[in-house]
């Protein structure tokens, strides 16, 4: 049992550089990055995922190190999903599936697996998924039964026509997360026009939207306010892969814990900062690292909003 759940795919990523060289595979995937973002601030969390049997030597060890129960991690196939990621100059990226998209589809989390993983103790859930009505209806029914809050991170590669589908299900989660490329595509607004995009986001029937604007930082948008926090570097940034998922997981925790939008977006950006320190996830989140992250959040809040 855990208060906070990160639900969805794990994926090992190799980064292909502009010169064609490729890194080793590093742990990642939306749910795992989000788990990292949550774990930076609370130990009371777990992963809900269909995985490959090869998860144990990497993801399994990381979760063991961090005292995270694997009770909702289910082995469904031989291999975890793997992707080759290429980052582009415009902040977008492309990915190529190593074992094929069918493998990834097979390992996607189904609503009934979320149902099996939640309990009366559950307070918040992160879920990266598409805008499928059938799936969200089921997720909504499960949420009603248990009474937790839910963060929906929009899956990448949306098209303009998806806006109608997004609007059909957006009232189900309490929190929403998307980046500027996705928002620009959905609403047909240039991606650097924060004002007009935020205007649309403020109309959404959710408590809070984490609107991620790449290297510039992120906004926490509510129906009545939009708080901006620039990117927070913990140290030199090495790899941005997973920063969006990580910040979204952390924002889910912060909003559910009752933090105001300023602290939510700061906490989100701090989590992204830790994620960017290396390829893959932060290797060991000690108690000291957790305390540092909280202290940094308090300091940044004072600097940015009270300074």
């Amino acid at each position: 049992m855990a208060k906070y759940l990160a639900c969805g795919n794990i994926m090992s990523d190799a980064i292909k550089s502009s010169d064609g060289t490729m890194s080793s595979f590093y742990m990642g995937g939306p749910a795992f990055f989000a788990l990292q973002g949550i774990r930076l601030f609370t130990k009371d969390c777990k992963l809900v995922s269909r995985v490959g049997a090869d998860y144990r030597d990497s993801y399994g060890k990381w979760m063991d190190l961090h005292g995270i129960t694997q009770e909702s991690v289910k082995v469904f196939a031989d291999h975890c999903t793997r992707h080759i990621i290429e980052h582009h100059a415009d902040g977008d990226y492309s990915s190529t599936s190593y074992f094929g998209s069918e493998n990834m589809g097979f390992l996607k989390t189904h609503p009934d697996e979320v149902d099996s993983a939640v309990s009366s103790e559950t307070r918040g859930i992160y879920f990266a998924h598409s805008q499928e009505k059938v799936i969200w209806k089921k997720l909504g029914d499960i949420k009603e039964k248990h009474g937790y809050k839910m963060m929906w991170e929009l899956e990448p590669r949306v098209i303009k026509e998806d806006l109608e589908k997004v609007m059909q299900v957006i009232s189900i989660p309490e929190m929403f997360s998307l980046n500027s490329i996705e928002a620009s595509t959905l609403w047909g607004i240039p991606r650097d026009n924060d004002e007009d995009i935020i205007n649309e986001l403020m109309k959404l029937p959710v408590e809070m939207t984490l609107y991620r604007v790449g290297k510039r930082g992120a906004y926490a948008v509510t129906p009545s306010t939009a708080e901006f926090c620039p990117m927070i570097d913990i140290s030199e940034s090495v790899d941005p892969t997973g920063c969006g998922n990580t910040s979204t997981g952390a924002a889910m925790w912060a909003h559910t814990e009752g933090y105001d939008p300023r602290m939510v977006v700061i906490i989100a950006n701090i989590a992204a900062g830790y994620n960017a320190l290396q390829k893959g996830v932060y290797p060991h989140i000690t108690d000291e690292v957790m305390a540092d992250a909280v202290r940094l959040a308090e300091r940044k809040c004072a600097e940015i909003f009270c300074g």
Binding site: E102, N103, G105, F106, K108, R157, V158
Partner: peptide, 15 residues
């Protein structure tokens, strides 16, 4: 109907 129909094929596969 979705951005990646092969992924859907996987989602609907029999366990």
């Amino acid at each position: 109907h979705r951005s990646d129909w092969i992924q859907d094929f996987g989602y609907m596969k029999t366990t």
